Structures are given as structure tokens and as C-alpha cells.
Computed example of a mutant assay.
Amino acid sequence: MGSCWSRLPPNNRPTPSPTGTVTPAGTFNSQTTSGSYGTSTTTFNSISTTSSGSGSGSSNNMSSSINSTNFSSSDFSIGGQILSTANLRVYTFAELRTSTRNFRPDTVLGEGGFGKVFKGSLDGITIAVKKLNSESYQGLEEWQSEIHFLGRLYHPNLVKLLGYCYEDTELLLVYEYMQKGSLENHLFGRGAEIQPLSWELRLKIAIGAASGLSFLHTSNREIIYRDFKASNILLDGSYNAKISDFGLAKLGPSASQSHLSTTVMGTPGYAAPEYMQTGHLYVKSDVYGFGVVLVEILTGLRAIDINRPSGFHSLTDWIKPHLLDKRKLKKKMDILLDDKYPIKAALAIAKVASRCLAPEPKMRPSMKEVLEILKGTQASTDKTAEVSGQD
């Protein structure tokens, strides 16, 4: 989740009605939200969701709503599946409070628009518990969207949602715990505990993230993730990348449409230009965000950094000419790599990133094509390393 959020006046907070419907009052704009360990600026409208009460009894209407989502068959060749029904545990607030030691400050993993994410332990398993801030109004729709999507999506490169809790005004989500935190933290974090990512790990992470995004895009009714960025890519103990936070995800356009028209929600620096300018959302709007993350992986530079000189705040505004020239690219590669990378492979990835950043959606490659190129680059790099080792 992000680092900032807005507050509702006390008389406007969402409260359950006697029938179990939660309805925040009013229409809200220009709020802040994001993934598990980062931030983004978004826009919200009023929302509503339905549940049948508190505790374990709240699952009835929620499960019915979740399972009615119109997913279609997916490309199982990339290791994922869409479940016919959500397979989620309904946790009680009491057991989640106990698992996090009453939500102690020293268990906080991240904080943002939705609220805080806590590290917990339950039934001998380490978990991550995302808890809606009681004074926040922007997380309710995202909370339900997470359940709608992650409750039925399975792929090794998507963070696993284990269950949820809805008791009175308490809204929580429970995920598998990701030991290494976010890609953003590894690229831009500071401190003795943060070790620079090697070239091999960066490529592995890029491939894992591309695999997860490709899975979302290859169902008959594509899923548009809408907020792809480094803070939403989490890493397990072996640095396997998993996409987190589906609060802004949307089912893609129908066969008769080319795009969705939506209120603009996303992160400056990552959001595709056509989406920011018109609100038109394409599947390939995600591809643009992936291109930005690829550039961050190569350069170690943030998508947006107001501490850079004027004209250089937005990474994509000035980096494109450097991506297609070997000599220019070498000058922009992350200094933390210490020149320990194959320039041929780096150039190949930079060229893919440049294509992803094309101004028009139709000019961008599909995520399936991007994944194939990244895997091919990894294979050729591994083969070159083997040959060098034999010399």
C-alpha cells in the first residue's frame, strides 16, 4: 500500500446498514493508493459492496458476488488457471488481531491508502494482513476487487490471497508472506539489509513479472491490471517475482470494443499516455507500465524523481534515445551492477522496453511476445556463460 491517504469526516465514514450494505457517502477524487509497499496517485468515485453480516457469516453474499464475475478460459500453458469459484478462508477479526499481536507497530510491513500491512503468524504459517484504516474511504472498492480477482486467479507469479475478514467496519485481506519485500525496495532502498540485485536476479524478476502479466492478458476476456509498477512486484525467499494488489484491476473490453473508458486511476510515471490523457484503457496500457519497470531494472532510476534536474523528473521523457544505442545505454546502466552484466543482453532488453514505451498502444508488443523475448535473452545469456566457462 502507499504511504499517504485521505480521511473522511466522522459523519461520512462508511458504515454497514441493517441489510449489510456498505456505502461510503459522496464522490471522491484525486486520492492516493498503491500496492503493498509503494505509492501511487489515483482518482476514486463512490462505491458499494454487500455482505451478510460479520464474522464467518459475512461470506454468503460476498462469495456469490465473487463467483459471478465473468471470467473466461485462460492460457494454461504459462502455468496458471482461473478457478470456477473462489477458494478463500473467512477469518475472524479476533484471530487476525492475535496473529499480529494486536497489530503491533513492529509488525508493520507497509502502509498506504488502504491502511497498513502487518506481518502475522497463524496456524504455524507466516502471513501478511492488510487492514483498512477505519478513517479511510478509498480502500473499500479495492478490498472487494482484490477478492473478485485474486480469489479466483492462480499463477505462480501472482501473490496468493488466502482469505479475508469483514466484521462491522473492519475490512482485512490475508496474503502469503513475501520474504524479500518489493522490487522497488531492492532497486531504490537504502540500508545494510538491502543488497544490490545482480544481473541474473534482475532478469529472473523481469521474466517472473512478465509471466504473471501475460497470464492476466491471455484469458478470452483479458484482465487489465492497471497499476503495474515496481512496488507491486513482490519477491519470495528465492527472488521469485509475484504481482500483488489487484485493487484497480478491470476485466478487459468485450470482443466488439477496443478499450474501456474509465476514470483515470494509476501512478504518474507508469501510467500509459493514452490512459492519462483520455481515460481510454487498453490491455496494452499495462505493457507501457511494464516497459517503465524494465527501464528501472536496467538503470536503477525511479520512474518519477523530482530530485533530478528540471526536464529529467520523468524517466521516460528522456531515456528513450539511450535505449537503442549500446554506448549510450552503458552510460545509463545501474552503477550498482558494477559493469557485471552482458551488454548484448542488456541492449536486447532495452530494445524491448523501448517498444513497450511506444506512444500508441497498437505499436506495443503483447506481453506474451515480451515474455518470449526475455526468456530467449536469458537462455542465450546462460548459453554464453556455459561456453565461457569451458574455455
Rank of each mutant, 00 (worst) to 15 (best):
L281H: 10
A192P: 02
S73R: 14
L173A: 08
C165Q: 04
I243F: 02
S74R: 06
G55P: 06
C356V: 03
M178T: 05
R364C: 07
N67P: 05
V174Q: 01
W199R: 12
L260R: 10
N185G: 15
E360R: 15
T377V: 15
H217K: 11
G20Q: 06
T43C: 02
N67R: 08
V295G: 08
L336C: 09
S214P: 01
L162V: 03
A86C: 01
L301I: 13
F44K: 00
W143D: 05
L187G: 03
D317I: 00
R308I: 01
E184G: 06
G151R: 07
T316A: 08
N29C: 00
D325V: 14
T263W: 00
T384G: 10
R302Y: 10
G237L: 04
D325H: 14
L172V: 06
L183C: 07
A350K: 10
D391W: 01
N220R: 12
Y175H: 10
S261F: 01
Q138L: 03
F76L: 14
G311M: 11
S77T: 15
K320M: 14
P18C: 00
V90C: 11
E296S: 05
N12C: 14
R89Y: 07
T69Y: 08
Q138W: 00
T19R: 13
Q390P: 00
R89D: 04
S145A: 13
E167D: 12
L158Y: 09
T69A: 12
P273T: 06
T107Q: 07
L122W: 02
K320V: 13
S77H: 14
P268T: 10
D75V: 05
F103V: 01
T267E: 11
C356F: 05
P16F: 10
K331G: 07
D391F: 09
S214K: 07
S59A: 15
K340L: 06
A230C: 00
V264A: 13
Q138P: 00
T98R: 12
T50G: 04
A206N: 02
G163F: 02
Y341V: 05
K332H: 05
V293C: 06
L203T: 04
F228Q: 11
L337K: 03
D339K: 11
L83R: 12
K160V: 01
T49I: 13
P365H: 07
I335A: 15
T262A: 12
P342K: 09
V293N: 05
E176M: 08
L88Q: 05
Q378R: 15
